[in-house]
Design a protein around this nucleic acid. Structure first.
Ligand SMILES: [Mn+2]
Ligand SMILES: [Mn+2]
Ligand SMILES: [Zn+2]
Ligand SMILES: [Zn+2]
Lengths: 145, 145
DNA sequence: ATGGTAACTGATAATGATTATCATTACCTG
DNA sequence: CAGGTAATGATAATCATTATCAGTTACCAT
């Protein structure tokens, strides 16, 4: 739930001594209310409708902070910019990326536990996070379907 | 095998009407001879020892070309630069990234076939490629091991 | 409520990677 | 050898991100 998450996020900030400021709340709110995987520039434009005056540098700083706190996830779709999304609790998922139209589709059934265990043993590595991206053609772009 | 791959790569270029030029051969050779996942700047420095005169712009162009031909794979480790590696045939693998020291470890046992089939059916998506990255701590950096 | 203070911010400049431009060169084909 | 296209290197331009810094604000303790 949106408001529940805002509450959790607020606590996460307070707990670690971060202040609840207008830019932080605005960006969190924007991400929570908009589906998709916006890049910084899109987030910047989005929040400025209600909060002109917030500067681009602050958007960068804020997203870095949120990422380090685990409140948002970063995602590289094209190489040039980073894309962001709320890291909703209990909504672990990954992405399918259409190489024709760029559409991004989410999927959640990555059964990674077993693979992770194998890898950790074989490589002597402690896995904390993982990301999977699959590239191909979405149903609209694949003529053969 | 290195020379075998150079041969395959040469054919791939010729077939599609690309010329076998000094920069192209030098970059291919550099990547084939050096393990790891160098960024452009490192590749540039590497080839210039034997081939001063090759310009940075050509390195960019060449790596884009190789990527589009499937001869090399691109990899985002930090957000700021792209990293490259030879896409050796029959050597499918993915990467573990240590969040402490940055070391990159490869693993090849990703059994993705089953998952891919599930996803393709559920999402109506045709998967052509996939990448998996796992973040965590390598054995040198994990005190608890 | 007020004041003190470190955290935070917005504007701006600086950086660094990537891309575009363009004149020159290398390579074919005939 | 001439003509034509692909490819290159130098350079400038672009664009995302980061650093700087002076002014502002949230928050805690009075
Ligand atoms: Mn997503
Ligand atoms: Mn690799
Ligand atoms: Zn598509
Ligand atoms: Zn490590």
């Amino acid at each position: 739930m949106r408001s529940r998450f805002m509450q959790i996020a607020g606590e996460a900030l307070r707990e670690r001594g971060y202040k609840l400021t207008e830019p932080r709340l605005a960006i969190l709110d924007y991400l929570a209310r908009h589906d998709g995987h916006p890049a910084i520039q899109e987030i910047y434009k989005g929040i400025r409708k209600k909060h002109p005056g917030i500067g681009m540098a602050t958007v960068y700083r804020t997203l870095d902070l949120f990422t380090s706190l685990g409140l948002v996830r970063v995602l590289t779709l094209e190489s040039s910019r980073l894309h962001y999304e709320i890291n909703w609790p209990h909504a672990h998922h990954h992405h399918l990326i259409c190489t024709v139209c760029g559409r991004v589709i989410e999927f959640s059934n990555c059964n990674f536990q077993q693979l992770a265990a194998e890898i950790e043993k074989a490589a002597q590595f402690t896995i904390e996070e993982h990301t999977i991206k699959a590239y191909g053609k979405c149903s609209q772009c694949d003529r053969s379907r």
